[in-house]
Design a protein around this nucleic acid. Structure first.
Lengths: 351, 351
DNA sequence: CCGGGCACCGTGAGCGCTCACAGTCTCCTT
DNA sequence: AAGGAGACTGTGAGCGCTCACGGTGCCCGG
């Protein structure tokens, strides 16, 4: 009742220090026998600091266990040190697709090495979208990595409107403001695979394409057509409803129905290919004996199927690296260009 | 040379406003004809605010597009509004395991609905670990969700030392300070599966256990033993090196070698089971004809294998929900208890 | 008719940092 | 020997917010 308030006004400083969370720059400065300004200088770059005071400050920091208060710093610099990783996808995509996990992981590691944090945000419904926008506008993040598979994503344009640097992973929306993107060469990869199937002796080629509103769905089909020219019979192209296993099975069933004597199929994603493999198996077709199957992504699942999937490898860690590089450039005020990274063929047993 | 500095000191306010990023509370207050204090009150709770000024402030906010500066707020409240999601794992785990992705996604969504952000952090090496600790100590996050599969993770103890609320997903380290955790009932699940295999007629049961330093590796094996009692022959237990497909294949090969007449195998994770299935297939054993195979996790891959995997389902979204609930309680200063959630059997074709 | 209570409101004092500026001190040039 | 160019350092003024405090006005009981 009597000891919970400092008795003397003069002891206020000490009391404050006692209840305060951690040491401040001021404390460090005092111990090191320098001023706030000098401590600040060693904190950012340490230019124009004598080696004597540098050492003193370092020692004082060590001794006090000082860690800089990022909020205070952000308040004045208007930089947050964080970037948002925005997933503009139907909610269950992340569950199924290991590709995204890898991307995220690599970005996090790369950003972390730069002392930056990665904030994960979903944008699967209007509420979430609004939150992302609010976040960006509020300056809580210095930049946004937008992973959007869908063309003409309204979020991309809206985000662009906030003035926050944005780089898109996948493909820039065909319409709307242009902003830098990083993507794997889907079309080239599809060409690679189609040609490979041809080289392996396929004569009755079919394809399971991805949804039409995704770059993968458009570009990979385009690559398939590039190689085959006009020689694609009716019924040899079926579009999957989504990128899941179920969708792949359904599409393959449909293909088997409409184009029964196929001897090879290019499937627009590994996950889809898993479903296709199941449908093929159920139909009694042997892979690769009766039909060759080529996938796309080289996701972790590709080597787990039976038989292991011949597929197109997306240079995922390179995509991640370029993604953060481009974003960092953007944040630094430069104007990096978009990048398309080459894909390559990974031969396994399915073709 | 002459027009880049304001001519009159008196115009400074206006110039500042022009170059300033966004409207501040002060601006909103001015427009609404009230004071900063009132604006602040409507921002947090709006108690003791007349409906007239409430409306005026709301309108002024709308009109100016005001969004609160979180850094300034954090600076004084010492709360950041973010929580860290720390992955204490070898780097390639996330690539392979869809379970983590789902957990992350659900946590992000749940946290987001509370207006909180989720910061993804890796802790796969000492550098990263140090970064996490630094982050926690710096008060950049209000709490930490530590996903740690390894027992006695030094990070858990270190994190506990920072005073930041921590909840562990998986299992609390047996040693060290006790902190709340949320886990699925691994042991119970393993019992469930083992009993099921027995009920299906298995007589020569074997198991591929997870690494010994993981709760999954310990608890699931314990559950297996619970049911079988002392009746487990030599060679019927093989420990996988890791949780990957390769490791599963290797372990199954070893089992086939040391315990050739097995008629059922309980594999400690779906990913491991994928490898096991491959090894079995390569050895010419049919599943489930010759040997029954049971997995664990019910990850997305379980329905993609051939045959689809009978497995134990972890209530992932419930784990996520409890995880954030417990953390939020902790942050609020309460003392929630740990939770263990029931698992269930999912019957597919492999057993 | 006056004093006290209550709902509402404005104000000042910071939170811990950065940045520009104004010193100080040393050393080199002319 | 005077002057200036650096190198180094300290200081003040905020960044935009919250929180405690001290006013107002108004209504009610005595």
């Amino acid at each position: 009742m009597s000891d919970d308030a400092p008795a003397h006004p003069k002891s206020r400083g000490a009391a404050r220090r006692a209840q305060r969370r951690g040491p401040t720059m001021e404390d460090v400065a005092e111990i090191a026998g320098v001023s706030r300004g000098t401590v600040s200088r060693v904190l950012n770059g340490a230019t124009h600091v004598s080696s004597a005071s540098l050492a003193a400050v370092r020692e004082a920091m060590r001794q006090t266990g000082y860690v800089v208060n990022e909020s205070a710093r952000s308040l004045v610099t208007r930089r947050s040190g964080a970037v948002a990783f925005v997933l503009s996808e139907p909610p269950d995509r992340l569950f199924e697709d290991p590709v995204l996990g890898g991307l995220m992981r690599t970005c996090t590691a790369l950003l972390g090495a730069q002392g930056r944090g990665l904030m994960l945000m979903l944008a699967g419904n209007p509420d979430e979208r609004e939150r992302v926008l609010h976040f960006a506008r509020g300056g809580h993040v210095d930049g946004v990595l937008l992973v959007s598979m869908h063309d003409g994503d309204p979020l991309a344009a809206a985000l662009h409107g906030t003035g926050v640097p944005v780089v898109i992973c996948g493909r820039a929306p065909a319409t709307g403001p242009l902003m830098p993107y990083v993507a794997a060469d889907d079309r080239g990869g599809a060409r690679l695979m189609t040609q490979y199937l041809l080289d392996r002796g396929a004569r009755r080629l079919a394809t399971v394409a991805g949804p039409a509103d995704t770059p993968g769905g458009v570009e990979r089909l385009a690559g398939f057509r590039d190689v085959l020219g006009g020689a694609v019979p009716d019924g040899a192209i079926v579009r999957a409803e989504a990128y899941g296993i179920e969708a792949g099975r359904a599409a393959m069933d449909q293909l088997l129905h409409g184009f029964p004597d196929l001897d090879a199929v290019f499937v627009a994603s590994d996950l889809l290919a898993v479903g296709a493999l199941q449908a093929l198996h159920a139909a009694g077709r042997r892979v690769p004996g009766d039909v060759l199957v080529g996938g796309f992504d080289d996701s972790a699942i590709a080597s787990a199927t039976m038989p292991p999937l011949t597929t197109i490898r997306q240079p995922l860690s390179q995509v991640a690296a370029e993604l953060v590089e481009v974003l960092l450039e953007l944040i630094a005020g430069r104007h990096p260009s978009s990048r398309v990274l080459p894909t390559s063929l990974v031969r396994r047993d399915s073709a």
